[in-house]
Design a binder for these strands. Structure first.
Length: 1108
RNA sequence: GCCGAGAUGGCGGAAUUGGUAGACGCACACGACUCAAAAUCGUGCGGAGCAAUCCAUGAGAGUUCGAUUCUCUCUCUCGGCACCA
């Protein structure tokens, strides 16, 4: 280790400090180093070569504690006695402490890991001593790009690298003595684990939360992988910094947006740091406002200015001035829909802006007179990378769409339409109404192009205080309406409400909520991830499914849950028909059947029919009459006379003519036996309080049909009056349907094991490297048994880390994701600590997945709808000099060296002592020495302990300090103020050192409160004090409230606000006594200089302030 | 640009219902032990001054008997978001 320069002749130790991190060199002390004069003097006298033996002889006999031996010994004892291995124990309260499981990178553990791990270890050890059944698990988040990239470079299977890295991490983590339950360890790359990650995906698919769609995705040109929006930072890849471009690709996507509201609202029920909550809320970015339709007119102005101009589908654009009403369904209306959070500024909307990608531009191509110019602008903006687009933010550009105008619905004014890239297609509707008087961006744009600015909100503050000037000419705050016709004088809040109601009434707008959050792109075109358990079957894809919904009496296609359902089905690539039936208000069965027969030719593939209300009997007759083979028949209502609830209908207010209609449809029973044969699967929805159908009768009547009955409490027919907007329960009926040919792998075939391949290189075409594994790809279709191909994309890294904390409760279960009994006991996590860098994505995703699992009862109700009760965050450990640690900078600090040199306890203690836990702190090599000295002092104190004498020795002051320290350490741990807790213990130890003798009980208390921080040392001392059991079985000490009050206190004396004196006085002294003592003090007398005090203020136990 | 956090000795930091600024640790200086070094122990350690004292918590103002703590203005640093309508 050491070498002696031949020229020097000095013992090597004089000149060389221990090896430093990173440099690989010895640090050489400069001989001109200005050491003490005596050192220089003495060093000149030294005789080379005579020292080493002398040192050995005369070294102070003080035995330093042997951290290497002690730490090894206690780590073995903890493991042998399985002290941290826990099981469900209903008799004890549980505590589940969680840290982010590490990614086993090739660099090994760095100093950031022990910071979080030690903190939670301290908390968990304290909880254990407080009597809790503590679960503190560990595992590895082992899928991921760095390993895969390394594998590509070295040509080794990532599996081998991962296993090796995990071994290194395991050894390192064990060397630090964390109280992990190692019996529960797993890695996300374990087949037993990712089987359930895949299972969760399948549940999402079956519940309509996973879909495959062709979408422009963020494509990292360097990693050759699609990224979630969340993974793109400033237009660059979060991971490698490579350029990100848009690429069209079929992707698996998870509907996280469905949970957006709950992900915000439920934050009210958890104990997270405020800033973490804010980050979640900002990321989801919910904003409430209104959608408003602006009609479009062509110039020269149409004769019907202000009337909405509508266009039939298929006609490229209307002729001048023509007004065409579109069909209610299927037509593309010529309105420009905008989203605004400020509908109250509608009167100030003087122009409109659409994003370059907006369809209106191509729809009106022939009417836009300057289309060439527009096209050029669009192409230029497409060429800009995201970075350029943001860089150019200062200067807004755009082109007017000449030849078309929009009409402001509130005042019928014609306003121009622009295309500009400051409007984003991805948010709202991709079009805005521009209100330059009250929006900075619109203001900038209007100024540049000389557009009209109409002020419609008056600043109330400015009205009250005329001298206050607003900073800019454009006022964006709330105020009072002006220039807004009948709405003048309303406050912004009132106005928003009124105008939204007005828009809804007129049918030109509605209240809307928008989110920044997008659905989560879940495909990665890589190798080292969980295979997505889906199979593509061309036969099934061709087959296609047709869904037909027959609405009820007085119904039509645009109401109830039908529009929502149509969208859901279309997203799955399913043909769906919801025809408007003839004479809906006085329907005749014959007419309906005729109209349905006309549709028949359009059906393709398997047919599924839903009959809703009066549509139910119509559906039955339709199928029977036309001898249609139906894959599934769903009836929501009575189809025959026996279960028709005539009494209920009368009570519900239907008159006799209505009942005649019911009789027309239901009077003649369908032939149930034939229907039973024609329909492969039958489901009947019932509700206990449905006025149309009596559930018990229905069950009898439908007996011959042999259906599955689904009974809802209050949802079978109509819910909440007429027309629920969404009916998610029904989606399950379509779960096994093909999604454009995508078929889920049957659950009993999981896991879909990642095949071993040789070439991991991703392709420029955007296909996963798995696409080359032909043996693996070709499989059988689980539905039709024909040849099919496996999905070759894999899941993102987040997939495994979403739910790992659930699996810890029951890591070896091969029957289910988690045993509900165990989940019920351990979950939710009581305290989760991790880095700030994971408080948006990982936290959001895992909360989403938890909520989903909660909804489908995969985690029991008792666990609640939030996975983490409490979430805190630690600051990053920076390299020396305050620079972020990175391999490329060569300043990564490996805790191994410090564990070797100073021991695990020192590393743990230093990581906690270096500064406030939540702030980022640079690592300081020298600082480590301080806590090492402290631990040695604690060890050396053993010499002072009087083991026989348990009675009063030592003074009361020490006892007071001891109990104050117990109090402080306990409180500081709870608040994660570990640095001050350690400092308090240092003060106590310094004080104990000064004592000639120590009571063994006092020393034991010190060791007990120190034990969570420095467990090895504490255990060793504890056993040397004669205890047989681990200190972890000791209870956490309580301080004596009487003892924490000192007998004598020091009180400061201020004269005219300046501190002039301090006097020591008994705690029992009264205010008057204190005042007289103060006034008698010579220093005070001197400063008073004979003057009479005007006022004497006494703050109890703190200060006396004299005013002259 | 917006949101959030922060700025205290040579360094990491402590102290807030407004009440003795600089705890604890590092570094440094001197001393003890040693032939010597390391380790250890002791003393000192914000600045100016021989001292009494004065000045000091990013800068400037204010409230108060008293402000690191509260209010206002400004500067800088860090983190998050970034044309989100």
């Amino acid at each position: 280790m050491f070498f002696t320069p031949a020229s020097s002749g000095f013992p090597a130790e004089v000149f060389f400090l221990p090896k430093r991190r990173g440099t690989g060199k010895m640090r050489i002390l400069d001989l001109s180093f200005p050491r003490s004069a005596s050192w220089r003097r003495e060093s000149r006298k030294t005789i080379p070569g005579s020292r080493v033996s002398a040192r050995d002889d005369k070294q102070k006999p003080m035995e330093k504690y042997n951290h290497k031996e002690i730490e090894k010994k206690w780590q073995k004892i903890w493991a042998d006695q399985k002290i941290f291995e826990v099981e469900v124990d209903e008799k004890k309260p549980k505590f589940y402490g969680l840290i982010e499981f590490p990614y086993p990178s090739g660099d090994g553990l760095h100093t950031g890991h022990p910071r979080s791990n030690t903190a939670m270890d301290i908390i968990c050890r304290k909880r254990k001593m407080e009597g809790f059944n503590v679960l503190y698990p560990i595992g590895f988040d082992s899928f991921g790009l760095p390993t895969e990239n390394y594998a590509i470079k070295m040509g080794v299977n990532p599996k081998i690298i991962t296993e090796k890295n995990i071994q290194i991490f395991t050894r390192q983590l064990k060397s630090l003595g964390f109280g992990f339950d190692w019996s529960r360890v797993f890695s996300t790359t374990d087949e037993d684990y990712y089987k359930w990650t895949q299972w969760i995906f399948l549940q999402m698919f079956k519940n309509g939360l996973a879909y495959k769609a062709k979408e422009a995705i963020n494509w990292c040109t360097s990693c050759k992988v699609g990224l979630a929006n969340e993974e793109v930072v400033n237009g660059k890849c979060e991971r490698c910094g490579g350029e990100v471009v848009q690429k069209e690709k079929e992707q698996w996507i998870l509907r996280i947006t469905k949970y957006a509201d709950r992900l915000i609202d439920d934050l009210g029920t958890v104990d997270y740091l405020e800033k973490i909550k804010t980050q979640q809320i900002n990321w989801i970015g919910r904003s409430e406002g209104a959608e408003v339709d602006f009609s479009i007119t062509t110039t020269p102005p149409s004769t019907a200015v202000g009337a909405p101009l509508l266009r039939k589908e298929g006609i490229s654009s209307p002729s001048e001035g023509e007004v065409v009403r579109s069909e209610r369904t299927g037509g593309v209306a010529d309105t420009l829909k905008v989203f605004t959070t400020r509908p109250d500024t509608l009167f100030g909307a003087t122009f409109m802006v659409v994003a370059p990608e907006h369809e209106i531009i191509s729809n009106f191509e022939s009417r836009i007179s300057n289309f060439g110019e527009v096209k050029k602008y669009i192409e230029e903006s497409k060429k800009k990378t995201d970075i350029e687009r943001t860089d150019l933010a200062k200067e807004k550009t755009g082109v007017e769409l000449k030849g078309i105008k929009a009409i402001n619905p509130v005042n019928n004014k014609e306003i121009p339409i622009f295309v500009a890239d400051y409007v984003l297609m991805g948010y709202g509707t991709g079009a805005i109404m521009a209100v330059p008087a009250h929006d900075t961006r619109d203001y900038e744009f209007a100024k540049k192009y000389g557009l009209e600015i109409v002020e419609v909100v008056k600043d109330i503050k400015a009205l009250k205080h005329e001298n206050i000037k607003t900073k800019e000419e454009c006022f964006i705050g709330d105020g009072v309406a002006i220039n807004s016709g009948e709405f003048d004088g309303l406050t912004t809040v009132e106005f928003k409400e009124k105008i939204t109601a007005w828009l809804e009434e007129k049918g030109i707008g509605k209240k809307t909520v928008n989110y920044k959050l997008h659905d989560w792109i879940f495909s990665r075109q890589r190798y080292w991830g969980e295979p997505i358990p889906m199979v593509y079957c061309e036969t099934c894809a061709k087959k296609k499914t047709t869904v037909l919904i027959i609405h009820g009496f007085g119904g039509h296609s645009q109401e109830n849950w039908f529009p929502w359902f149509k969208k859901e089905m279309e997203a799955r690539g399913i043909n769906i028909f919801i025809p408007d039936m003839p004479n809906t208000d006085s329907p005749k069965l014959e007419e309906w059947l005729e109209s349905l027969e006309k549709l028949k030719d359009k059906f393709a593939g398997d047919l599924m029919v839903i009959g809703h209300s009066l549509g139910a009997p119509a559906a039955c007759k339709f199928i029977e009459k036309n001898n249609l083979a139906v894959k599934k028949l769903i009836l929501v209502g009575p189809a025959g006379k026996n279960c028709l609830n005539l009494e209920g209908l009368r009570k519900a207010g239907f008159d006799e003519s209505d009942l005649e209609v019911a009789k027309d449809f239901c009077g003649e029973e369908p032939d149930w036996k034939i229907l039973n044969k024609l329909a492969e699967k039958k489901v009947v929805y019932l509700s206990e309080n449905d006025p149309f159908i009596i559930a018990s009768d229905a069950k009898k009547e439908y007996k011959a049909l042999n259906p599955e009955f689904i009974v809802f409490e209050n949802k079978g027919h109509f819910n909440e009056g007429y027309g629920i907007k969404e009916f998610p329960e029904i989606l399950k009926e379509f779960a096994e349907l093909e999604n454009n040919g995508w078929v889920p792998v049957p659950e009993n075939e999981l896991p879909v094991v990642l095949p071993e391949i040789e070439d991991f290189m991703p392709t420029d075409s955007g296909d996963s490297p798995l696409a080359k594994a032909t043996d693996w790809i070709n499989t059988k279709c689980p539905v039709c048994g024909g040849p099919a191909k496996r999905e070759t994309d894999v899941m993102p890294n987040w997939a495994g880390s979403n739910w790992y904390f659930i699996r810890y409760c029951d890591p070896k279960n091969n029957k289910m994701m988690v045993d509900p009994k165990k989940a019920k006991y351990w979950l939710p996590v009581d305290w989760y600590n991790g880095g700030m860098e994971h408080t948006t994505l990982h936290l959001l995703y895992s909360r989403f997945v938890w909520k989903f699992l909660y909804d489908i009862n995969a985690v029991p109700r008792e666990c609640g709808n939030e996975p983490y009760k409490k979430r805190t965050a630690h600051g990053m450990v920076l390299g020396e000099g305050g620079i972020k640690m990175s391999k490329s900078k060569g300043n990564v600090i490996n805790p191994d060296d410090y564990v070797q040199k100073f021991g695990a306890d020192t590393v743990r203690l230093y990581e906690m002592f270096m500064g406030p836990f939540d702030q980022q702190i640079p690592w300081d090599d020298k600082g480590v020495v301080g806590v090492y000295r402290f631990l040695n002092k604690v060890w050396d104190l053993q010499e002072k302990v009087n083991r026989n004498q348990k009675s009063e020795i030592g003074d009361k002051k020490l006892l007071t300090l001891l109990h104050q320290t117990i109090k402080k350490v306990g409180e500081d741990i709870e608040n994660m103020r570990f640095n001050t807790a350690i400092s308090a213990m240092m003060i106590l130890v310094n004080e104990m050192e000064k004592q000639p003798e120590l009571r063994v009980t006092d020393y034991e208390l010190l060791i007990t409160i120190l034990s969570p921080f420095a467990p090895h040392l504490s255990e060793e001392i504890w056993s040397q004090l004669g205890h047989k059991k681990s200190i972890l079985f000791e209870s956490w000490p309580e301080y004596d409230p009487k003892l924490i009050v000192a007998d004598e206190i020091e009180i400061g004396v201020q004269i005219n606000g300046k501190l002039r004196d301090a006097i020591a006085i008994s705690i029992k002294a009264s205010e008057d006594e204190i005042k007289s003592v103060v006034l008698a003090s010579p220093k005070v007398k001197k400063w008073l200089d004979g003057k009479e005090p005007k006022k004497i203020i006494y703050i109890k136990g703190k200060i006396v302030s004299i005013v002259v």
